[in-house]
């Protein structure tokens, strides 16, 4: 996983090529699930900088280290026409205190339904789907999870207000997600009594301090279906640096609440993304 990140980093440095026609930072960052957005919330933005009739590819690697767990996430994406976004991510969740690891694969599709992030009074609105498949389902199954795979469906609306606060541009995003996932799927999907999708709200706000530096906050509501331990909402405070259209770095302080009975999981998130 670290090798992949290094590979992304050096390839990006070696290829300072035109990535697309869109304005810097309008592709957002890449979430731990591989979809463009913040760090934990998918936005309506399409990853990369491709505009009409343009395509782009992305690669990302991220690490979240909280008190008793470490999540490594890495993946690739392909965007076309500022309309379609395809993504693949592999997550590796290390149980540092308990021992062992949980892995899942996430394949994502996003389609922009309407709006242009910067230009239209209507927010940019996108519909997304994430198919998740667990690779180490024995443990989630032991704590009551029903299924090793699941589908998240989300509707996201994002808009940038130019010159909103002290001459700075403000991005607001709201996402509604239908999900069966326990801890985003890392603890499997549904429980033995209930497999129906539940609606969750997720939100982000980001202020661009300069054309390439953003600070923001995120919130992700989570279901709480496994009886063995409470699952809590996630939140973070982030800073994202868009070095150029080919490279961005995001750092965040995250609060993931209780996970698998271990209380108050907080720590640091770092993500590196390349786009061509």
């Amino acid at each position: 996983m670290n090798n992949l990140m290094m590979c992304v980093f050096f390839t990006v440095l070696a290829l300072p090529v035109q990535a697309g026609s869109r304005v810097l930072a309008t592709g957002g960052a890449t979430t731990i699930e591989g979809s463009a957005g913040g760090g934990i919330v998918p936005w309506a933005v399409i990853n990369g900088y491709g505009s009409d009739d343009e395509w782009s590819v992305q690669a990302f690697g991220s690490r979240v280290g909280v008190d008793d767990f470490t999540l490594h996430s890495a993946g690739v994406g392909l965007s076309f026409d500022n309309r379609w976004e395809l993504s693949y991510a592999r997550q590796q969740f290390k149980l540092d205190t308990i021992g062992g690891q949980l892995r899942q694969d996430i394949v994502g599709v996003k389609y922009r339904l309407a709006g242009q992030l910067l230009y239209t009074s209507l927010p940019q609105i996108s519909l997304g789907l994430q198919y998740k498949r667990h690779l180490d389902f024995e443990l989630p199954s032991l704590v009551g999870a029903y299924s090793r795979s699941g589908v998240d469906l989300y509707l996201a609306a994002s808009k940038v207000w130019l010159d909103a606060i002290a001459g700075r541009n403000l991005l607001l995003n709201g996402t509604i997600r239908a999900t069966q996932a326990n801890q985003t799927g890392l603890l499997g999907f549904g429980n033995t009594d209930q497999q129906r999708h539940q609606l969750m709200f997720e939100g982000s706000a980001a202020l661009l301090l300069t054309h390439n530096l953003a600070v923001g906050v995120e919130f992700r509501q989570k279901p709480n279906r496994l009886a063995f331990a409470d699952e809590q909402h996630w939140r973070d405070v982030f800073v994202a640096w868009f070095v150029n259209a080919n490279l961005s770095v995001t750092a965040a302080y995250v609060d993931l609440g209780d996970i698998a009975g271990l209380p108050s999981q907080q720590g640091w998130y770092l993500s590196l993304e390349g786009s061509w």
């Binding site: 026609s21 869109r22 304005v23 505009s51 009409d52 009739d53 343009e54 500022n82 242009q116 910067l118 230009y119 010159d163 002290a166 001459g167 700075r168 300069t210 054309h211």
Partner: peptide, 25 residues
């Protein structure tokens, strides 16, 4: 199309940056 518009916006931003126009302006 939107690509033409995007490119023009990028050219304008780069022109404003080159000219040292304050970010807020």
């Amino acid at each position: 199309n939107t690509r033409d518009f995007d490119r023009l916006v990028n050219h304008l931003i780069s022109a404003m940056q080159q000219q040292g126009i304050p970010y807020g302006a």
